[in-house]
Design a protein around this nucleic acid. Structure first.
Lengths: 295, 295
DNA sequence: CGTTTAGTTCAAATATTTTGATGTATGAAT
DNA sequence: ATTCATACATCAAAATATTTGAACTAAACG
């Protein structure tokens, strides 16, 4: 076999770079360190290029090595996509479905559908991730997911995305039972609300313009990373704000949180399903059909 | 090692598709047919996809297999480019220099420079190809070559190409000694020339608009594939036309071809060197410097 | 019907990769 | 300064992967 680049060697170099050492790369690749050393030396010999230099007892990438690992990641990604696309053509069923779910959507809407999908096609890999606000759209635009559930707000200006309204999600405005806002006569004016700290879930988007919900002009805010964290912050009286009714039903029933009526309550708005138009996968179709028809 | 796509397997599938059979692929890859069979079966197992089906005694690609081979070619090309780019970064000397030479330029202008380049960097692979007229520019635009020598006519509208005049190449108008045009008093008018067949070298471009030289309006023509073929056609009295003086010096000296003076001779024009601006290769620089300064 | 060709199977041979033991060198802790 | 831990290199042995060559079945051709 003529000496050349191999994808396996690229994967080894990639692991060394990510993990910082041959030993750590060996661990994640389930090999012994001398297998890593052998693979690097063989690739250096085949290419006729030095990829690593010793600095003390550690190996550090040369400029050529850095180029190889950076561009090699694209090659590895393309190879994975090629394998994936080939399997998709062969079966009609894509071997992987990645779903981003906005944190306002309870997982129990999704998990039963995943179970049904696995009953139908046991080998499909399903990957669920949580995103917040614009983070869902961004994940779709950047091809990190195949489907988003719970997209909110206007679709970013991007062709090739299909979206449709899925559900109206009801929110309630809450505060802890011992929060001073609970002593106010209801309905409570926005001026009064504005004097108390809001609890806001940080948007997970990195490139799409961040969205936010629930923050009034000039109002102080506490930012938290997730809906679970937000609810907990409310329980502890750290602030006020809107949360999905379903997710605090138990807290409301027990009196831990109080639902407050405002003079200008926020209107319910639909949350969306979104996916790429070009995606013809059977698994996507399967899940979409069931999302549309479920109670 | 986890099962996955390998570049070697893609190369095998590619060879089967190009050559039409396992046996033929085996021949070009210097392997025995059962090694090909083994590689295909292993890839099918690793991907979990059928790539070939039997039709009679031949194997034919499935739809998934066709997708794999077509997209796989891109991957193989990208892997070669990655290896090349890595070597270039490591040495500054690109490992390969591809030069397209218009057929009006004698090879002896180029070959001594190649010898000097190989003296300086023995491992560099030099690839010389002949193109005609717009074919040289097209080869450069399409990244099939790194340097063109003998580009003629206006540079096609393309950014990123650097060109500079190299030489004035003198042409002479010739006919075979026994051609009837040689009986005419000189200088010969264009009307008289027009009554005789021209010999034209076909342009090698496929996408750039074809150029042509030497054909008068309403004049009949014989098209030939190369300058050598054109000169031979002239020797055999099949037509008249311009040829580079250097390439027919011997024919003129021996009286086999006659130089004819016209009332409106074609002006000498510069022939060009051309290359991509972004090309920073040391080998390209080496050759360009010597082309500029040679006699 | 005989011959040629394509691909498959399989045991043996060859090549490649991995492991495990041992080594050198470097950095951290005492 | 010494000891210990860690990183990578070396190398023989073992394991795995790939290739070869012989023999086979099946299909196409003359």
């Amino acid at each position: 076999m003529n000496p050349r680049l191999t994808l396996d060697a690229l994967e080894v170099i990639d692991a060394i770079d990510r993990k910082g050492s041959y030993a750590a790369a060996a661990a994640v690749l389930n090999r012994v360190p001398s297998a890593i050393s052998y693979t690097v030396q063989k690739l250096e010999q085949d290419l006729g290029v030095t990829l690593f230099q010793k600095e003390g007892r550690r190996a550090v990438l040369t400029a050529a090595g850095q180029h190889l690992v950076e561009q090699g990641r694209h090659l590895l990604g393309a190879a994975d996509d090629l394998a994936l696309g080939t399997r998709q053509i062969a079966t009609g069923w894509e071997p992987r479905l990645r779903i981003a779910i906005d944190t306002i959507v309870p997982m129990q809407y999704i998990l039963p559908l995943v179970a049904q999908l696995h009953a139908e096609q046991p080998t499909i890999e399903v990957r669920l991730t949580s995103e917040v606000l614009a983070g869902t759209w961004e994940a779709l635009i950047e091809n990190r997911v195949d489907l988003i559930v719970g997209g909110i707000g206007d679709v970013p200006g991007h062709k090739g995305i299909r979206c449709e309204p899925w559900r109206q999600l009801e929110h309630v405005f809450v505060a802890a039972a011992q929060h001073p806002l609970c002593q106010q006569p209801q309905p409570i004016s926005l001026e009064t609300v504005q004097q108390h700290r809001a609890v806001i879930v940080s948007d997970t988007s990195r490139n799409v313009s961040p969205l936010s919900r629930g923050l009034l002009s000039q109002q102080s805010a506490l930012y938290v990373p997730s809906m679970a964290a937000k609810i907990e912050a409310h329980r502890q009286g750290l602030g006020v704000g809107y949360v999905p009714r379903e997710q605090v039903a138990d807290d409301l029933a027990r009196g831990r949180l109080r639902e407050l009526r405002l003079t200008e309550p926020r209107a319910a708005e639909p949350i969306m399903l979104g996916w790429k138009i070009g995606n013809r996968g059977q698994a996507l179709k399967f899940v979409l059909e069931r999302l549309r028809t479920q109670d």
